[in-house]
Design a protein around this nucleic acid. Structure first.
Length: 477
RNA sequence: CGGGGCAUAGCGCAGUUUGGUAGCGCGCACGGUUCGGGUCCGUGAGGUCUGCGGUUCAAAUCCGCAUGCCCCGACCA
C-alpha cells in the first residue's frame, strides 16, 4: 500500500486529514478553526457551486447578496433561533476605533437580515413567491473543527424563499430536498437518504427540517444538505406581511436551505481510497491528465508533440491537463495524479505512437485491470464515454457500500450491534427524551425519518409502542 | 469549557531521563544518472529549539507562567 498516506483501515480520520492536505485541497490557517481552501480544492467547490447554481436558476431562483454583519437585536427576535445560535456567534463590539452602540453579529446564517428586508420588499400577493439564493461565507464558533467538515468560517449557499400559502412553502422545501438529492446522486455520485429531522435535530427556528444524509467510508453519517420549512416563525418575528387577493393582511410562509463546503469533505470520504482521492468525473477539476513517457532526448520532443495534439483535440470536450514536468518520472506522476483523484489518465509513449495507440487508465480501478489500449483516433468518442462509465461505477460502488452497511432491525439488541457496522433502520415512535437516551447509550443519533417509507405499521425499536414510521440512526460527524 | 498529549529546519521526527557549542529522513537548490508504476549518486542551502521569566559558569534539556495545535467528551452545515 501507499506509504505516503495512512491507510483508511488503520486510521480513517487521519487518512482524511492527510489526504485533504496532500492533495492540495486545503491547508490550516493561522487562525484557530479556519482553513485556506487551495486552488485545487476551490476549483472542486466551484464545480459544486456551478452545478447547484444552475439547478437553482432552472427552478426560478435568483441570486442576491446580503451583508456579513447583522445587528445583534435581529437574532433575538426569534427565540428558538437565538437560543440555538448564541453559543456559536462571533460578535463585533468595536469599529473605527470606538465601541459600537449595538454589537454586530457575523452572520451564522441570514434568516434574520433577509427577513428584515423581505418585510420591506413584500407588500402584495403579487410580490410572491420571492425566491432568492445567496452564495456567502458564514461564521459559527465551533468547539471542534475539521477541514471542510466543520470549520469556523465556511462557504455555502443559502436559499430564502417567501410564499403566500403554507402548501407552497412546504412544496418548495421538498422541491429543494429533491434538487439536493439529485445533485448528490448525479454530480457527486453520493447516494443519500432524504428525510425529515426529528425535533431535537432540526434547525433553530424551523417548523420542519429536511436533510440529505450520506454515509462515509467509516460507516458514519454526514449531513450533506438541509432544507427547512420555517412556517410563519420568521414572518411573525420580522413582520413580513402581504395583502392577499381579498385585501386581507397575511403573514408569509418562508423556507431556507443550504449546502456548504462540507460537501467537499463528503466527496472525499465517500469515494477516496488508500491511494488518495477518487473524484467523480462530473465534479473533478481535472477530468483527464496526459502523462507523456520518453526514454531518450530524441523521443522526448516527438512524444510531447503528440501529447500536445491529444490535449488540443480533447480541449473543450473535457477538462484536460498535460503533465510535461521533466523533473519527475512517469511512475511518480501516475501516483501523484491518482492521489489527486483525477478520474482518467492517458499514458502516451514511443511504443504507442508507433502503433497509433494510447493507454487509458481509470482511477476507480487501480493497477493493470483499469488500463485499456485504444486507437488514438477514437479518443474523442471513448474519453467522454469512459468518464460517464467511471461516474456510474463510483456511484454504484458507494451505493453498494451504503446498502451493505445499513441494516433493518427489530430489537434494541440488534440495533446496538448494527450500529457498529453503520446505519440502522427501525420502526420509531420515541420521544426527544428517548432519542437523548439512545445517544447516551450508543452515541448514535436519529439521522432522519426517510421520505420514502415502507408503509404499514410496526413496533418502536426503543419504546415498544406502535409505530407508523421508520427512522434511520447512525453515528454522525 | 472538562480530561489527556504535543510544540526542535518547509514537512515528519530524534536529542530532554543524566544540562556541556543542533542531528536524521523526506522535501528544496545545483550537477550527473534515470524515465512504461513513487530512480540512483554526489554537492549544498536552510534553526532566535513556540514565547516570557527563573535556576546555573553553562538550558532544546531543570522550574514557573503564557500561547498555540492535536486527541477524547458536551455543541454543530
Amino acid at each position: 500500500m501507499a506509504d505516503f498516506l495512512t491507510s483508511q483501515t488503520e486510521d480513517f480520520s487521519r487518512w482524511y486529514t492527510e489526504i485533504v492536505q496532500k492533495a492540495d485541497l486545503a491547508d490550516y490557517s493561522p487562525v484557530r478553526g479556519c482553513m485556506v481552501i487551495k486552488p485545487y480544492g476551490y476549483t472542486l467547490w466551484e464545480r459544486i457551486r456551478d452545478e447547484l447554481d444552475q439547478r437553482f436558476k432552472e427552478t426560478g431562483h435568483v441570486n442576491a447578496y446580503f451583508p456579513l454583519f447583522i445587528p445583534m437585536s435581529f437574532l433575538e427576535k426569534e427565540s428558538d433561533h437565538i437560543e440555538g445560535f448564541s453559543p456559536e456567534l462571533a460578535v463585533v463590539t468595536h469599529g473605527g476605533g470606538s465601541e459600537l452602540e449595538e454589537p454586530l453579529v457575523v452572520r451564522p446564517t441570514s434568516e434574520t437580515i433577509i427577513g428584515h428586508m423581505y418585510a420591506k420588499w413584500i407588500q402584495s400577493y403579487r410580490d410572491l413567491p420571492l425566491l432568492i439564493n445567496q452564495w456567502a461565507n458564514v461564521v459559527r464558533w465551533e468547539m471542534r473543527t475539521r477541514l471542510f467538515l466543520r470549520t469556523t468560517e465556511f462557504l455555502w449557499q443559502e436559499g430564502h424563499t417567501a410564499h403566500a400559502t403554507k402548501k407552497e412553502a412546504e412544496e418548495e422545501t421538498l422541491r429543494i430536498l429533491d434538487l439536493y438529492t439529485d445533485f448528490a446522486m448525479n454530480e457527486a455520485a453520493i447516494p443519500v437518504l432524504a428525510g425529515r429531522k426529528s425535533d431535537s435535530e432540526k434547525f433553530a427556528g424551523a417548523v420542519d427540517s429536511y436533510t440529505i444524509e450520506a454515509m462515509m467510508k467509516d460507516g458514519r453519517a454526514l449531513q450533506a444538505g438541509t432544507s427547512h420549512f420555517l412556517g410563519r416563525n420568521f414572518a411573525e418575528a420580522f413582520d413580513i406581511q402581504f395583502l392577499d387577493e381579498n385585501n386581507a393582511r397575511q403573514y408569509v410562509w418562508t423556507t431556507s436551505w443550504g449546502i456548504s463546503t462540507r460537501m467537499v469533505g463528503a466527496v472525499v470520504m465517500t469515494h477516496g481510497d488508500d491511494q488518495g482521492l477518487v473524484l467523480p468525473p462530473r465534479l473533478a477539476p481535472i477530468q483527464v491528465v496526459i502523462v507523456p513517457i520518453w526514454r531518450k532526448d530524441e523521443e522526448r520532443s516527438a512524444v510531447l508533440e503528440v501529447a500536445q495534439q491529444i490535449q488540443q483535440r480533447l480541449n473543450g470536450l473535457v477538462r484536460v491537463e498535460l503533465d510535461s514536468r521533466e523533473e519527475v518520472s512517469p511512475g511518480w506522476k501516475f501516483n501523484d495524479w491518482e492521489m489527486r483523484g483525477v478520474p482518467v489518465r492517458i499514458e502516451i509513449g514511443p511504443r504507442d505512437i508507433a502503433k497509433q495507440n494510447v493507454m487509458l487508465a481509470r482511477r476507480d480501478m487501480p493497477g493493470r485491470e483499469g488500463k485499456t489500449l485504444i486507437p488514438m483516433a477514437e479518443l474523442e468518442t471513448q474519453i467522454p464515454t469512459l468518464l460517464e462509465t467511471v461516474q456510474a461505477a463510483i456511484y454504484k460502488k458507494a451505493l453498494d457500500f451504503r446498502d451493505s452497511h445499513l441494516q433493518e432491525v427489530d430489537t434494541y439488541a440488534e440495533f446496538r450491534e448494527a450500529l457498529e457496522i453503520g446505519f440502522v433502520r427501525a420502526w420509531w415512535a420515541g420521544s426527544t427524551e428517548d432519542e437523548a437516551a439512545i445517544k447516551d447509550e450508543t452515541k448514535a443519533t436519529l439521522r432522519c425519518i426517510p421520505v420514502d417509507q415502507p408503509g404499514g405499521t410496526g413496533t418502536c425499536v426503543y419504546t415498544g409502542k406502535p409505530a407508523t414510521e421508520m427512522a434511520i440512526f447512525g453515528k454522525a460527524y
